[in-house]
Protein backbone atom coordinates (compact mmCIF):
# COMPACT_ATOMS: atom_id res chain seq x y z
CA UNK A 1 0.00 0.00 0.00
CA UNK A 2 1.05 3.57 -0.67
CA UNK A 3 2.65 4.74 2.56
CA UNK A 4 1.84 8.44 2.85
CA UNK A 5 -1.56 9.85 3.77
CA UNK A 6 -3.52 10.96 0.75
CA UNK A 7 -6.30 13.47 0.24
CA UNK A 8 -8.14 12.40 -2.91
CA UNK A 9 -10.50 14.46 -5.04
CA UNK A 10 -12.30 13.43 -8.22
CA UNK A 11 -14.19 16.48 -9.47
CA UNK A 12 -16.76 16.09 -12.24
CA UNK A 13 -15.98 19.35 -14.04
CA UNK A 14 -12.86 21.20 -15.18
CA UNK A 15 -13.93 24.33 -13.29
CA UNK A 16 -14.10 22.37 -10.04
CA UNK A 17 -10.71 20.77 -10.68
CA UNK A 18 -9.11 24.17 -11.30
CA UNK A 19 -10.65 25.55 -8.10
CA UNK A 20 -9.38 22.60 -6.08
CA UNK A 21 -5.95 22.96 -7.67
CA UNK A 22 -5.87 26.67 -6.79
CA UNK A 23 -7.01 25.96 -3.22
CA UNK A 24 -4.47 23.22 -2.45
CA UNK A 25 -2.20 24.91 0.06
CA UNK A 26 0.93 22.87 -0.63
CA UNK A 27 0.07 22.11 -4.22
CA UNK A 28 -1.75 19.08 -5.56
CA UNK A 29 -0.69 16.32 -7.91
CA UNK A 30 -2.85 15.83 -10.96
CA UNK A 31 -3.85 12.23 -11.71
CA UNK A 32 -4.79 11.50 -15.33
CA UNK A 33 -4.57 7.84 -16.42
CA UNK A 34 -2.11 7.23 -13.61
CA UNK A 35 0.08 4.88 -15.65
CA UNK A 36 3.23 6.69 -14.51
CA UNK A 37 2.05 8.40 -11.32
CA UNK A 38 0.58 5.39 -9.50
CA UNK A 39 3.65 3.16 -10.06
CA UNK A 40 5.91 5.91 -8.74
CA UNK A 41 3.60 6.24 -5.70
CA UNK A 42 3.72 2.46 -5.21
CA UNK A 43 7.51 2.63 -5.22
CA UNK A 44 7.52 5.56 -2.79
CA UNK A 45 9.25 7.77 -5.34
CA UNK A 46 6.29 10.16 -5.47
CA UNK A 47 4.56 10.98 -2.18
CA UNK A 48 1.79 13.44 -3.02
CA UNK A 49 -0.34 14.66 -0.11
CA UNK A 50 -3.20 15.69 -2.37
CA UNK A 51 -4.27 14.05 -5.61
CA UNK A 52 -6.86 15.48 -7.96
CA UNK A 53 -8.13 12.87 -10.39
CA UNK A 54 -9.36 14.04 -13.79
CA UNK A 55 -10.93 10.67 -14.61
CA UNK A 56 -14.48 11.86 -14.01
CA UNK A 57 -14.18 14.97 -16.18
CA UNK A 58 -15.85 13.89 -19.41
CA UNK A 59 -15.48 17.36 -20.93
CA UNK A 60 -11.69 16.77 -21.19
CA UNK A 61 -12.03 13.69 -23.41
CA UNK A 62 -12.69 14.68 -27.02
CA UNK A 63 -11.27 14.78 -30.53
CA UNK A 64 -12.58 17.66 -32.62
CA UNK A 65 -11.63 19.44 -35.83
CA UNK A 66 -11.80 22.96 -37.20
CA UNK A 67 -10.94 24.00 -40.73
CA UNK A 68 -7.16 23.92 -40.13
CA UNK A 69 -6.62 22.24 -36.78
CA UNK A 70 -7.54 19.24 -34.73
CA UNK A 71 -8.05 19.56 -30.99
CA UNK A 72 -7.53 16.71 -28.58
CA UNK A 73 -8.75 16.89 -24.98
CA UNK A 74 -6.11 16.06 -22.39
CA UNK A 75 -8.08 13.10 -20.97
CA UNK A 76 -8.42 11.35 -24.32
CA UNK A 77 -7.11 7.84 -23.79
CA UNK A 78 -4.44 6.37 -26.07
CA UNK A 79 -6.73 3.66 -27.43
CA UNK A 80 -9.33 6.23 -28.51
CA UNK A 81 -6.74 8.01 -30.66
CA UNK A 82 -5.55 4.92 -32.53
CA UNK A 83 -8.36 4.34 -35.00
CA UNK A 84 -10.06 7.72 -34.81
CA UNK A 85 -11.03 8.94 -38.29
CA UNK A 86 -10.13 12.60 -37.65
CA UNK A 87 -6.74 11.65 -36.24
CA UNK A 88 -6.08 9.16 -39.03
CA UNK A 89 -7.01 11.67 -41.70
CA UNK A 90 -5.21 14.77 -40.41
CA UNK A 91 -2.39 13.80 -38.03
CA UNK A 92 -1.86 10.06 -38.36
CA UNK A 93 1.45 10.19 -36.48
CA UNK A 94 -0.50 10.84 -33.29
CA UNK A 95 -2.34 7.56 -33.85
CA UNK A 96 0.94 5.82 -34.71
CA UNK A 97 2.47 7.00 -31.44
CA UNK A 98 -0.64 6.08 -29.43
CA UNK A 99 -0.61 2.57 -30.84
CA UNK A 100 2.86 1.70 -29.50
CA UNK A 101 2.63 3.14 -26.00
CA UNK A 102 2.96 0.44 -23.35
CA UNK A 103 0.51 -2.38 -23.99
CA UNK A 104 -3.23 -2.96 -24.33
CA UNK A 105 -3.98 -2.35 -20.64
CA UNK A 106 -1.84 0.80 -20.54
CA UNK A 107 -3.48 2.19 -23.69
CA UNK A 108 -6.94 1.50 -22.23
CA UNK A 109 -6.22 3.77 -19.27
CA UNK A 110 -3.38 6.15 -20.15
CA UNK A 111 -4.10 9.57 -21.63
CA UNK A 112 -2.37 11.89 -24.07
CA UNK A 113 -2.45 14.78 -21.59
CA UNK A 114 -0.95 12.66 -18.83
CA UNK A 115 1.79 11.40 -21.11
CA UNK A 116 2.69 14.88 -22.36
CA UNK A 117 2.57 16.54 -18.92
CA UNK A 118 4.67 13.72 -17.42
CA UNK A 119 7.34 14.86 -19.90
CA UNK A 120 9.37 11.68 -19.90
CA UNK A 121 12.13 12.32 -22.47
CA UNK A 122 11.12 9.06 -24.20
CA UNK A 123 7.42 9.96 -24.30
CA UNK A 124 6.10 8.98 -27.70
CA UNK A 125 3.81 11.96 -28.32
CA UNK A 126 6.52 14.57 -27.69
CA UNK A 127 8.39 14.30 -31.01
CA UNK A 128 5.09 14.02 -32.89
CA UNK A 129 3.79 17.24 -31.34
CA UNK A 130 7.13 19.01 -31.78
CA UNK A 131 7.39 18.05 -35.47
CA UNK A 132 3.80 19.06 -36.14
CA UNK A 133 4.20 22.44 -34.45
CA UNK A 134 1.40 21.65 -31.99
CA UNK A 135 0.20 23.90 -29.19
CA UNK A 136 -0.57 23.01 -25.58
CA UNK A 137 -3.60 24.76 -24.08
CA UNK A 138 -3.11 25.38 -20.38
CA UNK A 139 -5.74 26.57 -17.89
CA UNK A 140 -5.75 27.77 -14.32
CA UNK A 141 -8.67 28.97 -12.20
CA UNK A 142 -8.06 32.50 -13.47
CA UNK A 143 -6.27 32.26 -16.81
CA UNK A 144 -5.75 30.39 -20.05
CA UNK A 145 -2.59 30.41 -22.12
CA UNK A 146 -1.14 28.60 -25.10
CA UNK A 147 2.36 27.15 -25.14
CA UNK A 148 4.13 25.82 -28.21
CA UNK A 149 4.83 22.10 -27.93
CA UNK A 150 8.55 22.80 -28.42
CA UNK A 151 8.51 25.12 -25.38
CA UNK A 152 6.25 22.97 -23.20
CA UNK A 153 8.93 20.55 -21.99
CA UNK A 154 11.70 22.55 -20.31
CA UNK A 155 13.82 19.71 -18.91
CA UNK A 156 13.64 16.01 -18.02
CA UNK A 157 10.14 15.56 -16.57
CA UNK A 158 9.74 19.32 -16.15
CA UNK A 159 7.22 21.39 -18.07
CA UNK A 160 6.36 25.06 -18.47
CA UNK A 161 3.25 24.54 -16.31
CA UNK A 162 3.09 26.97 -13.39
CA UNK A 163 1.56 26.06 -10.00
CA UNK A 164 -2.21 25.98 -10.36
CA UNK A 165 -2.08 25.26 -14.09
CA UNK A 166 -3.42 22.24 -15.89
CA UNK A 167 -2.85 20.98 -19.43
CA UNK A 168 -6.33 20.77 -20.95
CA UNK A 169 -5.89 20.41 -24.71
CA UNK A 170 -3.45 19.74 -27.51
CA UNK A 171 -4.04 21.51 -30.78
CA UNK A 172 -2.37 20.28 -33.97
CA UNK A 173 -2.34 21.84 -37.42
CA UNK A 174 -3.85 19.55 -40.01
CA UNK A 175 -1.37 18.00 -42.39
CA UNK A 176 -1.62 19.85 -45.74
CA UNK A 177 -2.92 17.91 -48.73
CA UNK A 178 0.57 17.61 -50.27
CA UNK A 179 2.20 16.79 -46.92
CA UNK A 180 3.21 13.55 -45.29
CA UNK A 181 4.11 12.47 -41.79
CA UNK A 182 5.65 9.51 -40.03
CA UNK A 183 6.56 8.22 -36.58
CA UNK A 184 9.20 5.56 -35.92
CA UNK A 185 10.85 4.31 -32.76
CA UNK A 186 13.65 2.14 -31.45
CA UNK A 187 12.86 0.00 -28.40
CA UNK A 188 14.23 -3.31 -27.14
CA UNK A 189 10.87 -5.11 -26.91
CA UNK A 190 7.23 -4.28 -27.52
CA UNK A 191 5.94 -2.15 -24.67
CA UNK A 192 9.37 -0.86 -23.64
CA UNK A 193 10.12 2.83 -23.49
CA UNK A 194 11.76 4.09 -26.66
CA UNK A 195 15.53 4.52 -26.73
CA UNK A 196 14.89 7.07 -29.44
CA UNK A 197 11.70 7.97 -31.29
CA UNK A 198 11.34 10.22 -34.30
CA UNK A 199 8.58 12.08 -36.10
CA UNK A 200 8.76 13.86 -39.43
CA UNK A 201 6.39 16.17 -41.24
CA UNK A 202 6.85 17.26 -44.85
CA UNK A 203 4.94 20.23 -46.11
CA UNK A 204 5.47 22.29 -49.24
CA UNK A 205 9.16 23.18 -49.56
CA UNK A 206 10.38 22.02 -46.17
CA UNK A 207 10.50 19.15 -43.72
CA UNK A 208 10.58 19.12 -39.93
CA UNK A 209 12.05 16.26 -37.96
CA UNK A 210 11.86 15.87 -34.18
CA UNK A 211 13.66 13.16 -32.28
CA UNK A 212 12.91 12.21 -28.67
CA UNK A 213 14.71 9.98 -26.21
CA UNK A 214 18.20 11.37 -26.72
CA UNK A 215 17.79 14.78 -25.11
CA UNK A 216 15.63 16.24 -22.32
CA UNK A 217 13.08 17.48 -24.83
CA UNK A 218 12.81 16.56 -28.51
CA UNK A 219 15.62 17.74 -30.76
CA UNK A 220 14.11 19.53 -33.75
CA UNK A 221 15.66 20.12 -37.17
CA UNK A 222 14.14 21.80 -40.20
CA UNK A 223 15.53 21.01 -43.61
CA UNK A 224 14.70 22.00 -47.16
CA UNK A 225 12.13 19.92 -48.99
CA UNK A 226 14.80 18.45 -51.28
CA UNK A 227 17.38 17.82 -48.55
CA UNK A 228 19.00 14.39 -48.69
CA UNK A 229 18.31 11.90 -45.91
CA UNK A 230 21.98 12.19 -44.93
CA UNK A 231 21.67 15.96 -44.53
CA UNK A 232 18.54 15.53 -42.41
CA UNK A 233 20.19 12.90 -40.20
CA UNK A 234 23.24 15.12 -39.76
CA UNK A 235 21.05 18.10 -38.81
CA UNK A 236 19.38 16.04 -36.08
CA UNK A 237 22.74 14.71 -34.93
CA UNK A 238 23.94 18.30 -34.51
CA UNK A 239 20.77 19.15 -32.57
CA UNK A 240 21.39 16.35 -30.03
CA UNK A 241 24.66 17.71 -28.65
CA UNK A 242 23.18 17.63 -25.14
CA UNK A 243 22.23 13.94 -25.37
CA UNK A 244 22.22 11.92 -22.15
CA UNK A 245 23.15 8.32 -21.59
CA UNK A 246 21.70 5.70 -19.26
CA UNK A 247 21.43 1.92 -18.93
CA UNK A 248 19.58 1.69 -22.25
CA UNK A 249 22.31 3.40 -24.22
CA UNK A 250 25.18 5.86 -24.01
CA UNK A 251 24.81 9.45 -25.14
CA UNK A 252 26.83 8.77 -28.28
CA UNK A 253 24.73 5.69 -29.12
CA UNK A 254 21.54 7.71 -28.73
CA UNK A 255 22.93 10.45 -30.99
CA UNK A 256 23.78 7.92 -33.67
CA UNK A 257 20.36 6.31 -33.36
CA UNK A 258 18.76 9.76 -33.48
CA UNK A 259 20.52 10.26 -36.81
CA UNK A 260 19.35 6.88 -38.15
CA UNK A 261 15.75 7.26 -37.00
CA UNK A 262 15.56 10.84 -38.28
CA UNK A 263 16.44 9.54 -41.75
CA UNK A 264 13.89 6.75 -41.51
CA UNK A 265 11.14 9.08 -40.30
CA UNK A 266 11.80 11.53 -43.14
CA UNK A 267 11.90 8.76 -45.75
CA UNK A 268 8.59 7.39 -44.51
CA UNK A 269 6.99 10.85 -44.38
CA UNK A 270 8.05 11.46 -48.00
CA UNK A 271 6.60 8.09 -49.01
CA UNK A 272 3.35 8.98 -47.25
CA UNK A 273 3.22 12.33 -49.08
CA UNK A 274 3.91 10.60 -52.41
CA UNK A 275 1.10 8.15 -51.69
CA UNK A 276 -1.45 10.89 -51.26
CA UNK A 277 -0.52 12.24 -47.84
CA UNK A 278 -1.94 11.39 -44.52
CA UNK A 279 -1.07 7.81 -43.77
CA UNK A 280 2.05 7.45 -41.68
Amino acid sequence: MISSELAFYAPATLAEALEQLAAAEYGATILAGGMSLVPTMNLGLARPETVISLNRIDELAYIEEDADTIRIGAMTRHRDLIGHPIVQAHCPSVAAAASVIGDVQIRNRGTIGGSVAHADPAGDYLPVLAAAGATAVVRSATSERRIGAREFVVDIMRTALEPGELLTELELPKLPADGGSAFVRLARVEGAFAIVNAAAVTSGGSATIAVGGATASPAVAEVAGDASLEEAGDAVYEATEDAFGDLSGSAEYRREMARVYARRALAEARDAAANGGGAQ
Binding site: F8, A10, L31, G34, M35, V38, P39, N42, L43, V51, S53, N55, R79, G102, D103, V104, Q105, I106, N108, R109
Partner: peptide, 29 residues
Protein backbone atom coordinates in the same frame (compact mmCIF):
# COMPACT_ATOMS: atom_id res chain seq x y z
CA UNK B 1 5.44 -5.78 -9.91
CA UNK B 2 3.18 -2.88 -8.80
CA UNK B 3 4.72 -0.87 -11.63
CA UNK B 4 2.44 -1.70 -14.54
CA UNK B 5 4.82 -4.07 -16.28
CA UNK B 6 3.79 -7.65 -15.56
CA UNK B 7 0.01 -7.65 -16.05
CA UNK B 8 -0.66 -10.25 -13.32
CA UNK B 9 -3.16 -7.80 -11.77
CA UNK B 10 -5.20 -7.34 -14.96
CA UNK B 11 -8.94 -6.87 -14.36
CA UNK B 12 -11.79 -5.46 -16.44
CA UNK B 13 -12.84 -1.92 -15.54
CA UNK B 14 -16.14 -1.13 -17.25
CA UNK B 15 -15.27 -3.93 -19.67
CA UNK B 16 -11.74 -2.81 -20.57
CA UNK B 17 -8.57 -4.46 -19.32
CA UNK B 18 -6.49 -2.34 -16.96
CA UNK B 19 -3.59 -3.03 -14.64
CA UNK B 20 -5.25 -2.76 -11.26
CA UNK B 21 -1.98 -1.98 -9.43
CA UNK B 22 -1.85 1.31 -11.34
CA UNK B 23 -5.39 2.47 -10.60
CA UNK B 24 -6.37 4.02 -7.28
CA UNK B 25 -9.38 2.32 -5.70
CA UNK B 26 -10.85 5.75 -4.91
CA UNK B 27 -10.88 6.43 -8.64
CA UNK B 28 -13.27 3.60 -9.57
CA UNK B 29 -16.31 4.81 -7.62
Amino acid sequence: CTTGNCGACTVLLDGDTVKSCCVLAADVD
